[in-house]
């Protein structure tokens, strides 16, 4: 088992969340969240990878050839779609915040307290 992809996944999660916590701009915040989401893609693909494996399409390769796990690829694809939706909603909210209230700083937007 190669440790590098798992380390990359944890690193992406850590820097993404750090960016979200310290962000001063909504677009920056949404993109940091997208970086954190990317960690899940790397993790899923790493879990399904087999070292000499090929793409799991049995069209031009004989049965029994080692292939990577197709399930995690399906999961990653679903995950990409889901997270793209979330990013789109969040960016739409950021645009609304800037257009209506003239600020994209989450700290200056604040109205609810306590």
């Amino acid at each position: 088992m190669n440790v590098v992809p798992y380390a990359v996944a944890v690193w992406l999660l850590a820097v993404g969340v750090y960016g979200v916590v310290t962000s001063r701009h909504l677009v920056h915040l949404v993109l940091c969240l997208a970086v954190a989401q990317a960690s899940t893609y790397v993790l899923l693909l790493a879990i399904g990878y087999r070292t000499p494996g090929r793409a799991p399409i049995f069209f031009d390769i004989p049965p029994g050839t080692p292939v990577v796990d197709p399930v995690v690829q399906a999961l990653t694809l679903t995950d990409v779609v889901v997270e793209a939706t979330v990013t789109a909603v969040l960016l739409a909210l950021a645009v609304q915040a800037h257009r209506r209230f003239g600020t994209a700083d989450p700290d200056r937007l604040g109205e609810l307290r306590g």
Partner: peptide, 11 residues
């Protein structure tokens, strides 16, 4: 979304 608090709460 016209209300500031609604936008902030959703975010």
């Amino acid at each position: 979304v016209r209300r500031r608090a609604a936008l902030e709460g959703a975010l």
